[in-house]
Nucleic acid binder design. Structure first.
Lengths: 257, 257
DNA sequence: AATTTATTCTGTAATTTTTACAGAATAGAG
DNA sequence: CTCTATTCTGTAAAAATTACAGAATAAATT
């Protein structure tokens, strides 16, 4: 959606293609350089950042819409993607948007649009391999950036609440979902997986006990391969044992992990 | 909504009052006689049972809609009520309903209604004190019944999927949500809470270890009061210690509980 | 009053899991 | 060869979980 014509058509007639009153909001998590990050977009003409999102086509399964939106935005397919909450209580969600505001922001003359009506937001979160993402912007957005989850700025609409809920869900599900498998590259060091878990849980985990547990459960395998990290001892690389990992998750990994 | 006139108006013009394309579906859990049950409604003119539900008013917070719908149906207020999933993928959710079918069922002549359009279902589950519910039927439903969760019949639409997901969520959250507190009456026997947990988890728990743990965590308190149960030893009654219970839940009760 | 029946109630020991804790090894730069 | 920053690994104490069964008792019956 790049041309002005397309955008105008979307604003005026999008409800013929998409379900009105419902949006999908995506919290896309990536992990890089020992930091858990999410992808935010800068909305053109608005003074702030927000989550990527989109709408459900009238005859499209909801989960397919979520995948499509993610794919269009990041180029990624077949990543971990899960709905986690629907937002329908915040003042923003209750209030209709003002056409005047919209017109001012985007320089169009619109009188009436399905986009100004009350909208519930279905929150999805994605776990992606940071290095594989290539972000597309569109007419409504003119910049993008990965933000450390500990340093998220004030976001548009109720998106701060959405991010916090996504993080809380991630924390709750860490023992039941293959989070490490999806956020880390295929080969990783003990240090990397350890600090990923520390970041998500927001607390320290003794690395000796952590490693012992991972290995004793057979979740990861030490490879015969190391990474050069400058003038220090080279760490071994590890790899997930997918089957053992999934079995362990079914039981629910216990707390200290 | 009882009179034919009201119903006709709802079918024709309900979308002026309610958000179209979105319904709330409630899985109402109660516990009675050592069995976990859910409340189902018999839909008039349709050969089967389904979940209670309703719609969100245009300017009504979503959670308030869920409470209102529960209150209208059961008379209950201030009970545990939580959204757990959004259903938007099943064939039923994708397909529009046929006006002909509807007309046949309800004997009206309707050509076109917001009710026939594609609808996403927001699943909520409620935990209620079985003994306090008094069910209201309405124009669309002519019977109601509590069904043992192990004996749910084939339901209308995708409601079997909704029920299964609610149960799975209950199971996952049993260590993080005050489930016992909401499903049991104020005073209960050890046996009752024990078999409630066995029922939800679908497995046996050694009652000696179970009781030991509950008491050692200070979650329940033994009262100086017993219940007469005929020609057998009279069990003591217990009561939740709400504060200790909530503290324990914050940590997450561990697996054997 | 004793017996019977069905249910409640409780304790200990073995096992497993979790926690706490720090010093030796080493890659490469200087 | 030395230095620095980082990786790597083991053991013992504490806590939690599991396994397991016989004594107590309410009240109906004899």
């Amino acid at each position: 959606m790049d041309s002005l014509e397309e955008v105008n058509d979307f604003v005026k007639n999008g409800h013929q293609q998409y379900l009105p009153h419902i949006s999908l909001d995506s919290v896309i998590f990536g992990y890089h350089d020992q930091h858990l990050k999410i992808l935010l977009l800068k909305w053109k003409g608005m003074n702030g950042w927000g989550l990527p999102g989109g709408f459900i086509q009238r005859r499209e399964p909801m989960s397919q819409a979520a995948n499509r939106i993610l794919q269009e935005r990041t180029g990624l397919d077949q990543v971990f993607l899960q709905q986690f909450h629907i937002f329908g209580d915040s003042p923003y969600r209750l209030q209709e948007q003002s056409p005047q505001e919209f017109t001012k922001k985007y320089g169009h003359v619109v009188e009436d649009s399905w986009l100004f009506e009350r909208t519930l937001g279905i929150g999805y979160f994605a776990l992606v391999d940071y290095s594989k993402v290539s972000v597309q912007t569109d007419f409504f957005t003119d910049d993008h950036q990965w933000w450390d989850v500990l340093e998220i700025p004030t976001l548009l609409f109720d998106h701060n609440e959405v991010v916090q809920k996504a993080l809380a869900t991630l924390r709750l599900q860490i023992y039941h979902q293959p989070i490490g498998y999806n956020l880390l590259p295929e080969k990783f060091t003990l240090n990397e997986i350890h600090s990923l878990y520390e970041t998500i849980l927001g607390k320290e985990l003794d690395i000796r006990n952590f490693a012992k547990k991972l290995v004793s459960l057979g979740i990861v395998k030490k490879l015969d391969e190391r990474r050069a990290i400058g003038p220090h001892r080279s760490p071994y690389l590890y790899q997930f044992m997918k089957e053992a990992y999934e079995n362990a998750l079914k039981q629910g990994l216990v707390h200290t992990y």
